[in-house]
Amino acid sequence: MSEQTTSPATTGPQVQTPLQEFWGYFSQNTGAVIGLVFIICILIVAIFASVIAPHSPIEQYRDALLLPPAWLDGGNSAYLLGTDDVGRDILSRLIHGAQLSLFIGVLVVTLSLGLGVILGLTAGFFRGAVETVIMRAVDIMLAMPSLLLAIAIVAILGPSIFNAAMAIAIVSLPHYVRLTRASTIAELNKDYVISSRVAGASSLRLMFITILPNCTAPLIVQATLGFSNAILDMAALGFLGLGAQPPTPEWGSMLADALQFVQRAWWVVTFPGLVILLTVLAFNLMGDGLRDALDPKLKQ
């Protein structure tokens, strides 16, 4: 049987690049695509905030306090979504808030991902005492409600947007550490790592060049979900007055004293929360889609 007749299988579909293949799976998930589109929109809005926003986010129009949205009686088309109690345009504040929220998201995810990957790789690669210390610390952090820990950290560092971001980055570390450690351990015993080790690769090279690229899929998913967590936690801290300080237009802090307007001005309460919900939902939808597209278990 030196020569084999061509089987029909060889005339199958053309070989796809990994990216094409990934997009093929991802684009089948309607929710994920909607999420992605929404995120791109928010991104554009954030980048061109100062162009798009009709007003300055902090300018107070004293003649237009608590105006309802434009389509209601008493509304003014200059203030599309109405104004808050000191006469600031809600739409403009929301648009500028997008900038801040996305920036915080990037900051938090970069910090926690970077540090988490290093700690997780170290724990998974060296095992032994190093691992025990790191994983115990992670367990301790997981025993704290993340918001409470973040609040405590902010309370100590002092309320500011940067401190809040630090606090959120710290409390979201454990997930990245656990994930990286688990994938590292799983990869560590595979043949390609052993052969690389035998070839004399240094520990650092093994950790970052050989192993890490093979752990990226779950990390990408976690980072996407980390984004939505960062936005939610930031908003919660802002709401409690521990995040962005007035007059910074941050979504959560826009709701900080909304409780008193529940009875009088529903628009002050409704819009910022809706934007938070939609943005977080978009990231979660995309995260779900990414997980399905990147999870080799679900692929045929």
Binding site: S228, F239, G252, A258, L274, V280
Partner: peptide, 12 residues
């Protein structure tokens, strides 16, 4: 529900 900012949900 999973994406809900619960302080806003409470207000709503």
């Amino acid at each position: 529900g999973y994406s809900m900012p619960i302080f806003w949900w409470a207000l709503l």
